[in-house]
Amino acid sequence: MMATDGLNGLLVICLMGAVTLLTRFGGVLVMSVVPINQRVESFINAMSGSVLIAILVPVAVEGDMAARMALLATAAVMLAVRRPMPAIAAGISVAAGWRYLM
């Protein structure tokens, strides 16, 4: 645990930036030593969506009904039109509408 006020927060962000930079340089660095094999690639591809799902679990479980409906609307629109912008807009509108009406 670390405090997030003022400079401490900036330090936390610096660490985040360093980790992100490592991922930006890492692909080229690793490839110059040993090629990334298919199994590792498959693991990374499966993990990249999974981490987002994992973050959303508490939102879906603990959130109010409006939050759940918003996620549902986002998923539905995303599957239908495959564009993030309308999907996010739909989610937000549903959350706002649900809270206004219910």
Partner: peptide, 12 residues
């Protein structure tokens, strides 16, 4: 790291 790991594949 987990979210940005895709950068590894992109760079590669």
């Amino acid at each position: 790291f987990a979210i940005n790991a895709r950068h590894l594949l992109m760079g590669a």
